[in-house]
Structures are given as C-alpha cells and as structure tokens.
Simulated assay, not measured.
Amino acid sequence: MPFKSVLTVTGARQGEDDLKLAAKLCEEINAHLSVLVVVLASPPAGGEYAAVVSTAWLKEREAEMQQLERRTSVVSKMLSQTAVSADLSSDYPEEAWADDIIGRRARYTDLTVIGPELLATHTLKKRVIEGALFWSGKPLLLVPEGARATLKPKRILVAWDASLEASRAVREALGMLVGADEVRIVMVDPIEDERHHGQEPGADIAAYLVRHDVKVTVDRLPSSNQSTAAVLFRHAIDTAADLMVMGAYGHSRLRERIFGGATRSAIDNPPLPIFLAR
C-alpha cells in the first residue's frame, strides 16, 4: 500500500530540520504531511509543599502554553513555504497520556516519521515512539543523524525472525519492497522446524515476496556470540542498505513499555533508517 499521508511530531525546542525531512519525503512520494506540535505539561506539585508552589506551577504551565502557541506559529509559517499539502495541529498533554494522544493522531496517517532532532530528545522521543507503535496500528520510520532518508529505497534489509511482528512489518513495507532493486531477507541463527523458520529457513517468506515481484536474496547469518541487533546492523552496513525493515517486539502492561533487545537497539542507536511495525 502506498503511503499517502505522513505524520511527524515536533516539540517546542526543536528546529526545522525534522520538518524539512518529513516534507522532503512527502514530496518524493506525493504524500500529505501532518504535523503535530507537542509540549508536555509540567506535572503538578505534590506533597506538603503543594500549596506553597502551586502558584509557581500555574505560571510554569502558562509559560508552556505560550511556548506551544509560539512553536505552532513558527511551524505554520514554515509549512506555508513548502510545496506539499499539509495540516497542523497541537496538543498540551500530561506526559503520562502523551503516547495515547500521539497514537490516536497517527491512526489517521499511513506512517509516522521521527527525524534526528526528535531522536536526540529523551522524553518526547519515548512518547512518540510508544504512541506510534502501541496506539496507532501504523508503522514508524526512524531516521538517525547523517542518514539519507528515502521512501523509495533501492537496497532494503529485512530482519526476519518468522514472528507476527516481522510479518506485519513486511506487509506494511511491501510497496517499498516491490520498488527496490535488492531486498535481503536476513535471519540470525534461524531454527529449522515448523514452529519457527520451517525446514528451509527463509524459503517461505522469499516465495511470498517473489509472488509480489520483489527481487529477493536470503542471508542466514550466525550470531558468533554477538547480539542479533549487532549482526543485523553490521550486515546492513556491509551491504550498503538504504533501509532496514523489522518488526517491533514489545508489549504494553500497566503503562510500562517493554521492548525486545533488537527493537531497543533500533530505537536507542539506529545506524541507518529503520522501518518498524508491530
């Protein structure tokens, strides 16, 4: 399915680079750009000092809302100068509920893009990633500093572990896979049985993609006492991949977000653009 609508999220202290990146991606594929400006509300004071600091807290919140208004105005001006179709919204949520709000907004787009500026933040980055992965049902593209971002990649590495999450990531990325010159299905220490990779690891997913006219190569790699993420990232660099497609393994329980090792590595330190879905 082609991406016709792309979401990016920006905070009060970010510049224009992530916005320009998202706009460029939309230009590349003739997609609509949705921008959500988010400022996280300061938590209320608690304990015996609440009465003393409540006035200061209210002033802090007022300053944050003014920040949000100014940032929204700046982003609006920037969007008016781009050639892409765009819409703009803003929100001032409590941190604990920010991922819900971001996720609901992401449901009305095909893809959420997180650029280097947002990746360099801590709290807002975390909320955007969790909102997009747990609450939208849509995929996420992480673009690290110095990486060339494109939604028409020529060389794609698919991290395949035969999981539901990996299957969904492949399906969400199918339009890009079909258009690529080379797609490498990469497995690390694949297990040869019907409950895992089958009798010939990689054969089933390769056959599925070939039916969609995807140009497929299957790589089975040993971990050699390295983490799965390290093996995948090294292979992506060695094969000059433009993009890695992977399933985001994790679950939400009592508002805690718990990610698998490879997912966490992709989120914390992506060496190339990563396309995630779960």
Rank of each mutant, 00 (worst) to 15 (best):
L21N: 06
A22C: 03
K24R: 14
K24Q: 12
K24C: 01
K24S: 13
K24G: 12
K24P: 00
L25N: 02
E28P: 08
N30I: 01
A31R: 02
H32A: 11
S34K: 13
S34E: 14
S34L: 02
V35C: 06
L36A: 09
L36G: 02
V37G: 03
V37F: 04
V37R: 06
V38E: 07
V39C: 11
V39G: 09
V39F: 01
L40E: 09
S42G: 02
S42C: 00
P43E: 12
A45V: 13
A45C: 01
E48A: 15
Y49A: 14
A50E: 12
V52M: 13
V52W: 12
V53M: 10
V53W: 09
S54I: 12
T55S: 15
W57M: 09
L58M: 14
L58Y: 11
K59V: 01
K59L: 11
K59G: 05
E60F: 00
E60Y: 01
R61Y: 00
R61P: 00
E62M: 06
A63E: 13
A63S: 12
Q66R: 14
Q66I: 10
R71C: 04
R71W: 02
R71E: 07
R71G: 04
S73Q: 09
S73M: 06
V75Y: 01
V75H: 04
S76G: 14
M78C: 01
M78H: 07
L79Q: 05
S80M: 08
S80E: 13
S80P: 02
Q81L: 13
T82L: 07
A83K: 15
A83Q: 08
A83M: 05
A83I: 11
V84I: 12
S85Q: 13
S85Y: 01
S85D: 13
A86I: 04
D87E: 15
L88V: 09
S89V: 05
D91K: 06
D91S: 15
Y92S: 10
Y92H: 15
Y92N: 11
P93N: 11
P93E: 08
P93R: 10
E94N: 14
A96L: 12
A96K: 15
W97I: 11
W97S: 15
D99K: 12
D99I: 00
D100V: 13
I101C: 03
I101D: 10
I101W: 02
R107P: 02
Y108Q: 09
Y108P: 00
T109V: 12
T109H: 09
T109N: 13
L111T: 07
T112C: 08
G115W: 03
P116G: 05
P116E: 04
E117K: 02
E117W: 03
E117M: 05
L118E: 10
L119C: 04
L119Y: 05
L119D: 06
L119A: 10
A120N: 14
T123N: 02
L124T: 07
K125S: 09
K125F: 03
K125M: 07
R127L: 08
R127E: 13
E130M: 05
E130W: 03
G131Y: 05
L133M: 12
L133D: 06
W135T: 01
S136W: 03
G137I: 04
K138C: 04
P139K: 05
P139I: 07
